[in-house]
Design a protein around this nucleic acid. Structure first.
Lengths: 152, 152
DNA sequence: TATTGTTATACTCTATAACTATA
DNA sequence: TATAGTTATAGAGTATAACAATA
């Protein structure tokens, strides 16, 4: 569903930074979701692929903690990625409870495509914002996101 | 579930403005949801209360369009608000298909409480950000949110 | 005993189609 | 015909509890 006109909303919403975060988060997700749907993926799949591309093999519990995905939910996501042959679960020789999850050859390539799509989406999202302000925005968002961790 | 440490994530996520929007949107929702839960409310209920406080009586279809809530979903939300006696549906004399939705006396008071909670949540969210940067952030977010409307 | 992966369950949000009563 | 409110259904995200295998 499209976003409503910002100026028709009450000021208590349209000027509220928390509301704007929620609204823009949904908008960004929507733009990104449309693009990656062509690859048969949804956002959490992409978080996993990008993380494995960066970190190499990880246990499921490690992926879950890092990405704030419930251990229980991750199971189905990895099943789907395995069915697409983008990741595989290997035995961990040191701890037979664990599965080492890693990218396959096509998984590496799709992860690169996803990173590319992410850049294009950010560009579309911030089209009207001058580059200098864009970088100030990035800095401010990272600042607030770091502060948010303290309260957890 | 708490947010993971930003710096443990791959740069493709931790520096991506779209990802930060999604992440901060969820964080803001979580903070706000905890506060309003004491009133028996969830975020969409609050959007409705604040809108009615600003606009006065509205038809359901108008609320739905303004807040990007599905007409079908709005029905249950209003049922819940009616059960809490915060809004009521009145007959529209000009069009008997329409219901004029309006705040009750307690509804007006709760809407004011919600607006107050929203301000406190924003303050908690942006605790570490200097006021000047806070206003620059608000301006940038509103800019991006307005641009987003064009693509809809 | 605690941890890893798994299954099952439930609630919210979102999206869609179809029904009714009115226009 | 089209619109307003309603009902029902389904997918996705999130949260919780409980189980088997392993540490």
């Amino acid at each position: 569903m499209p976003s409503p006109n910002l100026d028709d909303l009450p000021d208590s919403l349209s000027h509220h930074i928390g509301y704007l975060f929620v609204r823009l988060g949904k908008h960004a997700q929507r733009l990104f979701s449309v693009e990656i749907a062509t690859l048969g993926l949804r956002p959490p799949h992409c978080d996993i692929l990008l993380t494995l591309a960066d970190r190499g093999a990880m246990a499921q519990v490690e992926i879950a903690q890092l990405l704030s995905i419930e251990r229980a939910h991750l199971v189905a996501l990895l099943d789907q990625l395995e069915r697409l042959e983008l990741v595989r679960r290997a035995a961990d020789p040191h701890d037979r409870r664990r599965h080492a999850v890693l990218l396959t050859e096509p998984g590496v390539q799709v992860a690169a495509q996803v990173a590319d799509i992410a850049l294009r989406v950010e560009d579309a999202l911030l089209d009207g914002l001058p580059v200098v302000e864009r970088e100030l925005l990035r800095k401010a968002l990272r600042h607030v996101a770091r502060d948010a961790e303290e309260g957890d």
